[in-house]
Write a protein that binds this DNA or RNA. Structure first.
Length: 512
RNA sequence: GGCGGGGUAGCUCAGCUGGUUAGAGCACAGGAUUCAUAACCCUGAGGCCGCGGGUUCAAGUCCCGCCCCCGCCA
């Protein structure tokens, strides 16, 4: 089967990770785990974007060298990945040496193509902020001096800068959008990008001389690369380009990013790659934001919640499940303690958890703790299994569309069907009248739980593993290839244990 | 201001080219059941389908106007 190279955006570690970081990396982890389980050769890249003015400023504020600052901050991001059970194949840092080398190689390639030239950048500059501001952002003070929105004085400044001939790529980009409309998703984002490009593209300033925390521009020691130039290139770095063999890890199949950075990924990045003559990523997906009770988290609102704290409260897998299932991928979504708790109880404890528990405990009691014997199947049995077997294709389609929510919808439709099947067949009653038939019913229910657990793995790896353990499914039989197999009657099973406890809101804790 | 998307049950949302009593999940109420995590299963209640016009035998679905929300751009 095909290769799958998927990335998150790299996080800017000028502050600690928040739920937005967690959301993106969890969704991408689902995509990667799904592809791996489906037998695809998968590479999952995430990491941190460590250069640029804001990091330099934050480091100075903390009174430490920038590298020391990011070395410390990065630990929080890596810890988040560990805590959330993220399965990245590489955690890239833009301060990694191989990355700097690839950035410089890419720069030189673009320069050789004639797309990089030296010119001057002019604008209103605040020395205090080390930043340029647009004229319409400025405020005129009583004494006539011009002030930035931050209240610092700005002066008209001319700075030498390298520019990228983005203007050259208007037509190629429009052609890309026309020929490959799935390049940017959701579709409304593509439309926005097209509208933006149709208005005309200005050349892009891609170097700075006002600070030095960045990748040095080759042959131009006073300049460091513009952070986005540096950051976007991270996707190419693991391929080792331009060294031999890079084609094995480039192009990326999918960049999963926030809706706020679509422009950089859908315009600048492909233009850079076109300039360098490199293949383009196949798809860029801009997801929405996760809001706490409809409000963006901010320090001033005091509603910042660290992902690790949420994982502590609800459990890693329930948190992952909530974010993947409850929010249409691509749309904004909300969360609160009640909504997560409600979802956990309804879907995990009541539906799937209870299904597994009732099935396994009946087997434990009535079938000597072994997978019950199968036997002649009725139409209802066939219908049940046929329905469950459609899950895999539905989930694959959802994966291709980057819609974890839809994949989980499809799985849970089957969870419900199996609960209905058990109620209708009532194996607890059959046990007294027709024990052989009761065994067959339980066999079918357990087999369905096995298939469901297989497909749940990418969303909730730990919990799914516990379910599969309880069905005595060998580790080698946990890829999607195992959909073709069946539980083997007579296999001894461990004592069943609940996997998804109900969530009870702590009475004394205020709801955040 | 320009372009685009949207306003449908308490909440989150489905409703393709107009056509029987507008759907799902959650939450809520009742029933049934007792294998199971006060769970499962069944039933029910709950909608001027943003507002006002219009086209049509027929409009949530098309057209016009207005109000509100969101996104991109300026």
């Amino acid at each position: 089967m095909s290769r799958f190279f998927v990335t998150t955006a790299i996080s800017y570690p000028n502050g600690r990770p928040h739920i937005g970081h967690a959301y993106e990396v969890i969704a991408t982890d689902w995509l990667a785990r799904f592809a791996r389980a489906d037998g695809r050769e998968t590479f999952f890249l995430t990491g941190t974007d460590e250069h640029g003015l804001k990091i330099a400023q934050a480091a100075r504020k903390a009174d430490v060298p920038p590298k020391q600052f990011v070395d410390e901050m990065v630990l929080h991001f890596k810890a988040m990945c560990d805590r959330l059970d993220i399965s990245q194949d590489r955690f890239i840092r833009t301060t990694d040496e191989d990355h700097k080398a690839v950035c410089q190689a890419l720069w030189q390639k673009m320069e050789a193509a004639g797309d990089i030239y030296l010119d001057r950048y002019e604008g209103w500059y605040s020395v205090r902020d080390e930043a340029y501001y647009d004229a319409d952002e400025l405020v005129v003070a009583d004494d006539g001096t011009k002030l930035a929105p931050t209240g610092t004085e700005v002066v008209w400044t001319v700075e030498e800068s390298w520019f990228f001939r983005l203007s050259r790529f208007q037509e190629p980009l429009l052609r890309l959008y026309a020929e490959q409309p799935e390049f940017v998703q959701p579709t409304n984002r593509l439309n926005e990008m097209r509208a933006f490009v149709e208005r005309g593209l200005k050349d892009l300033s891609i170097s700075r001389t006002s600070f030095d925390w960045g990748v040095p521009v080759p042959g131009s020691p006073d300049h460091v690369m513009y952070v986005w130039m540096d950051a976007l290139t991270n996707y190419l770095t693991p391929s080792g380009w331009p060294a031999a063999g890079w084609e094995a890890k480039w192009p990326a199949d999918l960049h999963v990013i926030g809706k706020d950075v679509v422009r950089f990924h859908a315009i600048y990045w492909p233009a850079f790659l076109m300039s360098a003559g490199l293949p383009l990523p196949r798809k860029v997906f801009g997801h929405g934001f996760v809001l706490n009770r409809g409000a963006k988290m901010s320090k001033s609102l005091g509603n910042i919640v660290e992902p690790g704290a949420l994982a502590d409260t609800f459990g890693v897998d329930p948190l992952r499940y909530y974010l993947l299932r409850a929010i249409q991928f691509g749309q904004d979504g909300e969360w609160s303690h009640e909504t997560i708790g409600r979802r956990i109880n309804a879907d995990l404890a009541n539906d799937l958890g209870n299904l597994a528990q009732r099935t396994l405990s009946m087997i434990a009691k009535a079938c000597e703790g072994r997978v019950p014997p199968d036997g002649p199947a009725t139409d209802a049995d066939h219908a049940l299994l046929a329905g469950v077997s459609t899950m895999l294709e539905e989930a694959r389609a959802a994966h291709a569309d980057v819609r974890p929510d839809l994949a989980l919808d499809a799985i849970w439709a089957r969870v419900s069907a199996v609960n209905g099947y058990l109620n209708e067949m009532a194996p607890w009653a059959l046990r007294k009248t027709d024990p052989a038939r009761a065994d067959i019913v339980l066999y079918h229910a357990a087999e369905c739980v096995r298939q469901i657990a297989l497909l749940v793995q990418p969303a909730m790896p730990g919990s799914a593993a516990r379910l599969l353990d309880q069905l005595a499914v060998a580790p080698k039989d946990r890829s999607f290839a195992a959909f073709g197999k069946r539980l083997v009657p007579g296999t001894p099973l461990p004592a069943p244990q609940g996997v998804f406890p109900r969530w009870v809101e702590p009475a004394d804790e205020p709801d955040v």
